[in-house]
């Protein structure tokens, strides 16, 4: 019997190189168009801005790899921000302005994120409703709740608390701000979990064929639930970083974050229908999306108002490249 296996498939080549090439291209183009582009200030600015979407997108990578989707992360972030601000403001009269209030606020954000993620996950796994439908619903619910909490306007953090809290966004060590540090830690952990733990392996197995996973004694529902819970927790962490930036939350907070996060995941080479995920790819996806906005702001080549159009074109292009890679494999 001959071994009729065609040469070892070197699959998805273009999707590995594609995003990296695009990123390099953007950086080179940026450096040529504006000398300030590679300056320390701009680089840290870009990274810090990437951090919110980036932290969420790492969680989204796991959800999508396991064959799921979460549309609610943007409004979830807004709701958590609103809740956090309300709780902290209400504690000021009793606890005074101090670090403990902020710590309580952070705990509230983490717990709320975890609870929101678990709720999505339970509805999806226990009741067997499509992830798209569940999270479309919760997206509307959280968006509406934050509008209601803010009474249609803006929730602002107590002024004194705000200055105490601000270093979490603007401060840092060795000139690297906290959001960048947290983002980096989340990415490194995410990459390790995806690449070399049983959980990451199970996510990919479930995403490529959940029946096979079930027949292989994988606890499919529990793994799926955990991906949503982890994403919720990461939304909480991103919100903790985000609130000190503006010190407020409104119905417009976190608008379209879900789309940016999903887009970053896809651009990075994770397969939208699940089965294969790449955390470092997601990071590149996030950087590409942020850099485009940044470049358009720094140069007057193209109107910044066309930011969305260019991002959209890149998302479509990324998916086209993915398909080519698959056909080749």
């Amino acid at each position: 019997m001959s071994d009729v296996t065609a040469s070892a498939p070197r699959r998805i080549r273009m999707t590995v190189i594609g995003p990296i090439l695009a990123l390099i291209l953007l950086v080179v183009a940026g450096a040529m168009m504006n000398p300030n582009f590679l300056g320390w200030d701009n680089v840290t600015n870009v990274l810090a801005r990437s951090a919110f979407i980036g932290i969420i997108a790492v969680g989204m990578t796991f959800v999508i790899t396991a064959g799921g989707l979460d549309l609610s992360v943007g409004s979830m972030a807004a709701f958590i921000a609103g809740l956090m601000i309300l709780v902290m403001n209400s504690l000021v009269p009793t606890m005074g302005v101090g670090v403990p209030v902020i710590l309580v606020g952070m705990a509230v954000a983490l717990l709320a994120g975890l609870a929101a993620g678990l709720l999505n996950g339970i509805l999806i796994t226990r009741l067997g409703i499509e992830a798209f439908i569940v999270t479309l619903g919760s997206m509307g619910i959280y968006r509406s709740l934050v509008t209601w909490l803010a009474d249609g306007g803006t929730l602002s953090l107590d002024f004194n608390l705000r200055s105490l809290y601000q270093p979490v966004y603007y401060g840092g060590v060795f000139g690297i701000t906290w959001p960048i540090i947290v983002f980096a830690v989340v990415v490194i952990l995410g990459e390790i979990v995806m690449r070399s733990t049983a959980f990451g392996r199970y996510c990919a197995a479930i995403g490529s064929n959940d029946q096979v996973a079930r027949y292989s004694s994988v606890r499919v529902d529990r793994v799926r639930l955990l991906t949503y819970a982890a994403l919720g927790l990461l939304v909480g962490i991103a919100t903790i970083m985000y609130v000190p930036r503006l010190g407020s939350a409104s119905s417009a907070t976190g608008m379209l974050w879900e789309l940016e996060a999903i887009a970053a995941v896809i651009i990075g080479g994770t397969v939208l229908k699940g089965g294969f995920g790449r955390v470092w790819g997601t990071v590149i996806g996030v950087l590409i999306l942020t850099l485009i906005g940044n470049l358009l702001n720094l140069t007057d080549f193209v109107s910044p108002y066309l930011n969305g159009a260019i991002q959209g074109a890149i998302i479509v292009l990324a998916v086209v490249l993915q398909r080519e890679g698959k056909a080749r494999g």
Partner: peptide, 9 residues
């Protein structure tokens, strides 16, 4: 093919 093995892995 559909319950035993992950064909894409």
């Amino acid at each position: 093919k559909t319950r035993g093995l992950l064909l894409g892995k």
